[in-house]
Amino acid sequence: MLNAVEVVGAKPALSETGDAVPGQWFRVRAPLTRRVRIFLAICSFLLPLAVWSAVSYVPFLWHPDVLISDPGDVDYFLPGMRVTKATFASEIANSKTNHTDPPQGTPCNPVYLPAPGDVLAAFYTSFTTPPQDQDGLWLHQSLWQSIQTIFWGFVVSSIIGVPLGILCGAHSGIARLVEPFVEFFRYLPAPAFGTLAVAVLGIYAGPKIAIIVIGTLFQQILIIANTTRKADFALVEAALTLGTRNLRLLTSVIIPSVLPDLYRDQRILLGWAWTYLIVAELIGATTGISLFITQQSRYQHYANVYAAIAMIGILGLGTDLVLAALGRKLFPWDKAAA
């Protein structure tokens, strides 16, 4: 009997190690081994990259344009110019009928889709290329400017949003007073306040930070309030029977009990703030990574543009991974993070 119990107990453990159960090819939420998890995470980046590489390096897949290598006798063709396949074909036909020197070229993709290799190279070259404008910024300076805008926008939003959200989540009266207006305001698109922000705060950092605050704060209040509301009430009751009263319920029970969740919310909201960055930077005097991107696309350096966009992603994901690791250190008792 005891053996039978052990065997039954051992079965789920077997499937946890990845052993297939016959006839069951779609196992709902089956746990993955560490190796499989890492492999799939790498694939999640490699797959889009593979599609991009295929489109870039396999000539017959797309390549709607022709990159001119020798213009021949076509007067408006230049070496390095991209023309559509139709134009190229008609000029070839022209040169045949007129017996002129035909143009030469190879199939290529439009200028706005650089190959992965070019973008990879641009990661390096865009840092080493001096700014094209006289008082322009190097890429690392642009990035630093963007990071500062994000940082201050998020700090200002959090200083107001976190305490207010916690109070709303803990006290029904405050929630009733604050939340209806916040619910209304969060539907107003932050960029709509752009000109107003410039009029009030000038053209430099002020309005940009304000846009990030407007974009983040109102969501933040509601999200933090909602998380605070989910605090386990059984713990509050336990604290009541242990003699806890009034604000100490908030500081000693509610806040610590939801702190890991608040931390997770803040990570999500920081990602939110990043999405407002480009809009914010275009307001007033364009600055930061947006300035770099607009300038590079003006010169049709699309590889640099892609590199800059990818850098925002890498910075955002990198920050989040660091914060997630920090969270596991800060809240060792939190099971959801472990």
Binding site: A234, L235, E237, T241, V253, P256, S257, L259
Partner: peptide, 19 residues
Amino acid sequence: GPGRERGMVFQGYTLFPWL
């Protein structure tokens, strides 16, 4: 109202997980 002179042990586990 509740008070510390009436201690209570609940059915579920109500230890403070962060302490």
